[in-house]
Design a protein around this nucleic acid. Sequence first.
DNA 1: CGCGAAAGAAACGCTTGCGTAACGATCCGC
DNA 2: GCGGATCGTTACGCAAGCGTTTCTTTCGCG
Lengths: 116, 116
Amino acid sequence: MPIELTPSQALGLWHSVSLAQVRVDSRDLTLRQLAILLHIYLVPPPHTVRGLAATLGVTKPVITRALDTMGALGLVDRARDDRDRRNVVIKRTVEGALYLEKFGDLIIDQGRKQLK
Amino acid sequence: MPIELTPSQALGLWHSVSLAQVRVDSRDLTLRQLAILLHIYLVPPPHTVRGLAATLGVTKPVITRALDTMGALGLVDRARDDRDRRNVVIKRTVEGALYLEKFGDLIIDQGRKQLK
DNA sequence: CGCGAAAGAAACGCTTGCGTAACGATCCGC
DNA sequence: GCGGATCGTTACGCAAGCGTTTCTTTCGCG
């Protein structure tokens, strides 16, 4: 089943999801942070700071800071790579998985309401 | 045509859209700002600071600041309401409409790629 | 009038994010 | 085992966002 959206459906979906998310969660992640979080959980590991920076097209400190913030929120974790101790591998957490699961539900919910 | 998404489709769509948006636009709007912007353009006017604050479940200064920022970016405009000069009505701009149009295209694009 | 209520902005101190640049730790080829 | 390259973090000065509180303007009703 391909996803085919009209412009009004696309923006309407984004609108209702953003609104619902803002109401439900006072943590106001930036678009960058959200993109990083989703990337970590949806793309097969391993993930490194450098890799994420390249993927997002941003500098490394941006990734470090985002990981600091989301790490403090418990959404991700970090660990040194034992095979190359210069690297840091980014690890998923139960809390992060839960967060995205709820976010996914929210999208589906709003998508269902969008045109029924 | 109702929108029906699987969890993996929902998060996958958000992932690719966030990623593409981050790459394409260095303005890193917060989720709140995006929600406000979408609300202004998708819901029939008039829009006021107070109304937006109630809709988003945030305080009035949050809206004032968001409008300051997005106003400076040219995405929205403000004008006093002549019938009740305490009110400010929020106005759309050509640039803002264009911004959202491009954003909608991006969603549709990514949605199409998502499962083909 | 006059005065409280309402709307939005401005002020305050604080936190968080930014880009650039510098820094320690680690790897690797010679 | 040393010197340059690579990886992630930290430091710095700055801009932007936050919540709370305090104006300023305007309304509306007695």
